[in-house]
């Protein structure tokens, strides 16, 4: 949402909030969606092919290191999807823009899938490295908990019939859940120091992975970000159409 809104703003439109209007959103997203999807496919193909076939093996980890091109971007997006849901939930609670609430709803399953990919690739990577598919390592555990938060959030959306009620309740859950997700992160660190390597990406150049791995990783991350934006746009469009359908049915009932 942040990304596409930013993109829209650069086109010289008057107010950011115009795109919170469902009709306007549909118009603009119809134009944006193919571009986002195409760019994302391009970035993913370039990033993954480059990463898998044109980088050397790591001197310690061998070729297993190459799963980083799926693992890191998906983990990044798993967290960013929740952050986006937090922002859009706040926008819904404060300014009552329906598109914002629907975008949050649309992002949740995407975020959950990203979490699952991160966990699965982590397990596949962890097996040869640590000799076990699963370890109660703080990072893995935190992502598992994040996955549970996604599940609860999605389940609440599904359970509440009235759309506005559901949007309100899930937004409150998202806010509270965010606080508890951070709390859980620190609690888990306290609970087990873990064997996960440090952050793969950081501003401190010393700790970064080597450049040969780094550049394709950036492309791959860009691909995941674009993929996320495209999926969220697509799903938000579906949600809006669903609401239109519901509105039509309501109208028919009242006519």
């Amino acid at each position: 949402m942040q990304q596409d809104r930013g993109a829209l703003k650069s086109r010289g439109m008057a107010s950011l909030w115009e795109y919170a209007n469902p009709k306007r959103f549909m118009q603009v997203s119809a134009v944006l969606l193919p571009w986002m999807a195409g760019l994302s496919a391009l970035c993913l193909v370039v990033g993954l092919v480059w990463g898998f076939f044109f980088t050397p093996d790591d001197f310690r980890q061998g070729s297993t290191v190459k799963i980083i091109y799926l693992h890191v971007p998906s983990a990044l997006m798993a967290i960013n999807a929740w952050l986006m849901m937090l922002v859009t939930s706040l926008i819904w609670l404060i300014r009552r823009h329906h598109v914002s609430a629907l975008a949050a709803r649309a992002a949740a399953p995407v975020g959950l899938v990203m979490t699952v990919i991160a966990l699965a690739t982590g397990a596949i990577w962890g097996q040869p490295m640590w000799g076990t598919w699963w370890a109660w390592d703080p990072r893995l555990t935190s992502f598992l908990i994040l996955g549970l938060f996604y599940l609860g959030y999605i389940a609440l959306w599904e359970a509440v019939e009235n759309a506005d009620t559901a949007a309100d309740l899930t937004s409150v859950l998202c806010l509270v859940g965010s606080v508890f997700a951070v709390l859980s992160r620190y609690a888990v660190l306290f609970w087990n120091q873990g064997l996960h390597q440090g952050a793969s990406l950081s501003l401190d150049k010393e700790e970064n992975v080597a450049d040969v791995f780094y550049h394709p990783l950036l492309v791959s991350i860009a691909g995941f970000v674009l993929l996320f934006v495209a999926l969220v746009l697509l799903r938000t469009r579906t949600e809006i159409r669903q609401r239109r359908l519901q509105a039509l049915l309501n109208r028919e009932r009242m006519a």
Binding site: W17, E18, A20, N21, P22, K23, R95, R96, H97, H98, V99, D164, I240, R243, R244, Q246, A247, L248, N250, R251
Partner: peptide, 28 residues
Amino acid sequence: TDDRAYDGQGAGAARRGAFDGDDDAGAF
């Protein structure tokens, strides 16, 4: 569930509400 707010004719008030105000008024 007002659609006239968005089809470009009539319902001026709702239209204003949707485009100028803070709220998209839930018109889908």
